[in-house]
Simulated assay, not measured.
Amino acid sequence: MNSTTRLLLIAALALSAASAPAQTPVRIDTAAFSMVNQWGDAPDTLLSDSNGVTRIGLNTASASLSADTARYLDGNFYGGLFEVTVNAGYRVTGFSFSGTFEGVLYVPPNTDGTPGDGFAYNSGYIELSAGSRPYGIFYGEHAQRIDMLDGAIPVMMSSGELSLTSDFNLSLQGLVLVSAYPTTTPEHPAGIDSFASLRVRDPVFTIYTSAVPEPDRVAMLLAGLGVLGSVAIRKKIGDLQDCQYDLPC
């Protein structure tokens, strides 16, 4: 597929997504944060939430990032804007996106077993970015692209270590494209269908959080450390005094 055809298909898919009827955002609440996908047209799922690790299944992304064809072109576009509100007393220490690209490419051979003149192609792209809300500090961008995939490749994008106590946005964009053209033979002048498919399986956001120590607890901790330090100093002074009287040190 040439670049002009690909750009036209991307534009058509994006226009179709933009003109789709608005959906009511679904809110996911945890003790540490809440998250709303402003562009989602299917409820995302809270898979697990324990020990500061929250896993959220992206149902809309799973449904959208899938395409297959036996002849000519097909594709799908996905865009998700996730508004994350951090609750008081907590911080977000990192986040990641994971999933698996799965693709199938098949071109039927000629009747004598030699390679056919058909064609099968797939291409996928996922981009994750994040920034503060309202838009200001940019926390980074990650992307992964695959082409001509016949099998499976895992996808993992991670923010690295963070310490966010203010609200932020996660943006996830994705595109899958497939095309297939038949193998023609003298016995089958109309062609024997080729096949191409691509999907993103089990797309998941993982958000890592921790509690922020309360000020009075921090003060108590510092006071305790101060007492321990004083005791250690007094003991050291006592040991030095003992040494002055020829006692073992």
Rank of each mutant, 00 (worst) to 15 (best):
V26H: 10
V26S: 11
V26C: 08
V26A: 14
R27I: 15
R27Q: 15
R27T: 15
D29C: 09
T30A: 10
A31T: 08
A31S: 09
A31E: 04
A31C: 02
A32W: 00
A32Y: 00
A32I: 08
F33Q: 03
F33P: 00
F33V: 07
F33H: 01
F33A: 09
S34Y: 01
M35Y: 01
V36S: 02
N37T: 08
N37G: 06
N37P: 04
Q38H: 09
Q38W: 10
Q38F: 13
Q38K: 08
W39A: 07
W39M: 11
W39P: 00
W39R: 05
G40K: 01
G40Y: 09
G40C: 03
D41I: 06
A42Y: 00
P43D: 06
P43T: 04
D44V: 07
D44L: 08
T45D: 06
T45P: 01
L46F: 06
L46T: 10
L47A: 10
L47R: 10
L47D: 08
S48C: 04
D49S: 10
D49H: 01
D49P: 00
S50A: 13
S50M: 08
N51A: 15
G52V: 11
G52W: 12
G52N: 11
G52H: 07
V53Y: 03
V53K: 13
V53C: 02
T54Q: 14
T54C: 14
R55K: 14
R55G: 02
I56W: 05
I56S: 07
I56G: 04
G57I: 09
L58Y: 09
L58K: 05
N59D: 09
T60L: 08
A61I: 09
A61Y: 12
S62T: 01
A63S: 09
S64Q: 09
S64G: 01
L65G: 02
L65S: 06
S66M: 04
S66Y: 03
S66G: 04
A67F: 01
A67I: 01
A67C: 03
A67G: 03
D68H: 11
D68M: 11
D68W: 11
D68K: 12
D68S: 15
T69W: 06
T69F: 07
R71C: 11
Y72C: 05
Y72A: 11
Y72D: 10
L73D: 09
L73Y: 15
L73S: 08
D74V: 05
D74Q: 06
G75E: 03
G75K: 00
N76T: 03
N76H: 11
N76R: 04
G79I: 06
G79S: 07
G80S: 15
G80N: 08
G80Y: 13
